Amino acid sequence: MRVLVTGAAGYLGHAVVAALAERGHDPVAFVRDAAKAPRQAAATAVGDVEDPASLREAVRDVEGVCHLAARARVRESLADPLPYWRTNVNGTLNLLGALTDRDAPASLVLASTAAVYGTPTVQPISEDAPIAPTNPYGATKAAADLAAANVAATGRLGAISLRAFNIAGAVDGHPDRDFTRLIPKVLAVQAGLAEELGVNGDGSAVRDFVHVADMAHAFVLAIEACTPGEWRAYNVGSGRETSINDVLAAAEQITGRPVRIKRNPPANEPRVLLADSRRIREELGWQAPNSDLSQILSDGWKSLTSAYAAPE
């Protein structure tokens, strides 16, 4: 299958392109800068999701789209929400418009997020949990999901939304350089790229981490499973309970040095956020073989230190 990957130059985009190619598909990298397209891409299309004309051209000869292009920082979305609505919602609407202009129905997999659920009290979180985002990022992703579901219901495409929890680790030497996220920030501190890690409260908050390779494999399974006229949402998480303190301890063991931390007052955030991923496991056969915390950290550490190593 020829599959367009929007946001292909990003952290997850590199992993998805690699996973599609390994499966025998022909991934087409949709990027703003052709020089940043992943090497595994079968072809490159230059454009922007906020430019409808470039999207119409890019989808002309593909059978499916993995839609990853988005703004994805929660705190940034609270401070400046309008760019999130422009990119995450308008960008998705532009893509849906381009796909529905075609004669044949396409397959569409959207990179969604657990943030659409807000802070549910029932854990782990299933796809039946109410949609109640608490920040603009989650709200824009929920809107994109709903738009895709509405268009799919017309029969003009088949769509799946993959609601990721916390993606980490590395594939093919591409670390996550977003140091606003917990694991990349911990590794950055250990590599000397950041001074310290701020920890809210006692570090006992629990999160669900999934390896980027396992997340990428979910996209491959989903693009193969789309059915015209249907939309489906799947949670993607390991289901493993991992506290902030667990991450610190594992990072210290892997890097061989203590993590320099700054203790902050407890924040107004959920104590536990865990994925119920039974639906994707049972319906698509997805598994998370790489999502052990030690492998996530080891892969991320190796890629980060290699990427930032000084030339000889």
Score class of each variant (00 low, 15 high):
150 N>V: 14
140 T>W: 06
104 A>H: 08
101 D>A: 15
34 A>D: 06
211 H>W: 10
25 H>G: 03
157 L>W: 10
269 E>S: 12
124 P>Q: 03
43 A>R: 11
221 L>E: 03
83 P>H: 08
299 D>G: 05
285 G>F: 10
123 Q>L: 11
240 R>F: 03
240 R>E: 15
66 C>L: 06
17 V>W: 12
279 R>C: 02
120 P>N: 04
69 A>W: 11
231 W>S: 14
210 V>D: 01
226 C>T: 15
195 E>C: 00
236 V>R: 11
245 N>M: 10
148 A>W: 02
233 A>N: 08
23 R>V: 10
31 V>K: 11
152 A>G: 03
100 T>F: 02
223 I>R: 01
252 E>N: 06
64 G>E: 12
121 T>C: 00
297 L>R: 04
297 L>H: 06
195 E>R: 13
12 L>Q: 13
141 K>R: 14
177 R>A: 05
262 K>A: 11
95 L>I: 10
208 D>E: 07
201 G>W: 05
19 A>F: 08
115 A>C: 08
145 D>S: 05
1 M>G: 13
303 S>H: 07
96 L>Q: 05
205 A>F: 01
235 N>V: 05
169 G>D: 07
49 V>C: 09
212 V>M: 07
112 S>P: 10
122 V>P: 00
65 V>A: 09
296 I>T: 04
141 K>I: 08
197 L>C: 04
123 Q>G: 05
73 R>H: 13
164 A>M: 14
220 V>K: 02
167 I>L: 15
307 A>N: 01
84 Y>A: 04
175 P>M: 11
208 D>L: 02
135 N>T: 03
257 R>W: 00
